[in-house]
């Protein structure tokens, strides 16, 4: 079985993310890059399948990003992934979730397809949660989001539990399939120090646009209909009014005020 795990390099924002007030963009100076934390759960799940399921399995870590993202992929290799592929080309820059999903899907096809695609539920920088399902649509395979458990897995079918509002949903799908996972699914391991030194000797495969035979109109900025108009921190304003008079009068004033504000 071949399992592809989609990973993204994101700025480490656990301490405090700073937004440039003028441009509305994230200030990346001096901010370390890490693997998107949710993707670590996807990597862990893939490695557990490889270790626990009978048969020969291959885990491929796949990412799209600038050449520096190779560092993150080395970490995926250190964790125990068999291969790592980075899609890197100036033509891919500026991609929104649609173009990203398209490009990742073409890469999975270039790999020769796979049996299972695992993604984190969302990236902590964009928080869209769209790329996973987008890849599934591009590959025309079923998907389940917010998976907290793989109940059963065979080359033909997969049964999962999804974390949905107010409960758990059980879903059975045919394979190949795509899952996006939540942090309840497992406890990610640390890379072993031996794994780190092994990964040092392994190469990250880098593919450009030509390698993937993509439609130039569908990648990068050209293939991205999304337009970011403005990024801003919402201003929370408080305007407190103290009502006076008898309870009856106060109630009348309150109703009047709510009606005026269009809230009643």
């Amino acid at each position: 079985m071949r399992i592809v795990v989609c990973v993204k390099q994101v700025p480490e924002t656990t301490e405090s993310a700073k937004i440039n007030p003028e441009t509305g963009t994230l200030m990346r100076e001096g901010v370390a890059s890490i693997t998107n934390p949710f993707d670590m759960y996807a990597l862990e799940e893939a490695l557990r399948i490889k270790e626990k399921q009978e048969g020969d399995h291959e885990v491929v870590a796949l990412s799209m990003g600038p050449p520096q993202a190779q560092e993150m992929l080395k970490e995926a290799l250190a964790l125990g992934c068999d291969r790592a592929v980075l899609l890197s080309d100036r033509a891919f820059a500026g991609a929104d979730t649609l173009a990203t999903a398209y490009t990742l899907a073409r890469a999975i096809e270039t790999l020769g397809g796979c049996d299972l695609v695992l993604c984190g539920k969302q990236a902590v920088d964009g928080d869209t949660a769209q790329v996973g399902p987008g890849v599934a649509e591009e590959l025309d395979i079923p998907h389940a989001t917010y998976v907290r458990k793989i109940a059963s897995l065979s080359p033909q079918a997969i049964e999962v539990e999804r974390l949905v509002e107010g409960g758990i949903e059980q879903v059975e799908m045919t394979m190949p399939a795509l899952l996006t996972v939540v942090k309840e699914i497992n406890e990610p391991r640390l890379p072993s120090l031996r794994g780190i030194m092994k990964a040092k000797r392994m190469e990250v495969t880098v593919w450009d646009a030509a390698e993937l035979a993509v439609d130039a109109e569908r990648v990068g900025l050209a293939g991205s209909p999304t337009e970011v108009v403005k990024v801003f921190t919402p201003q929370l304003e408080k305007d407190t009014q103290i009502l006076e008079g008898s309870p009856d009068e106060q109630a009348k004033q309150l109703i009047h005020g709510l009606r005026q504000a269009g809230l009643m």
């Binding site: 640390l190 072993s192 120090l193 031996r194 794994g195 780190i196 030194m197």
Partner: peptide, 19 residues
Amino acid sequence: GELGLFGLPFPEEYGGVDA
């Protein structure tokens, strides 16, 4: 030991991590 801390400065052929 599982993490590989004890083998850091020793070569792999002697059970090390080759750092």
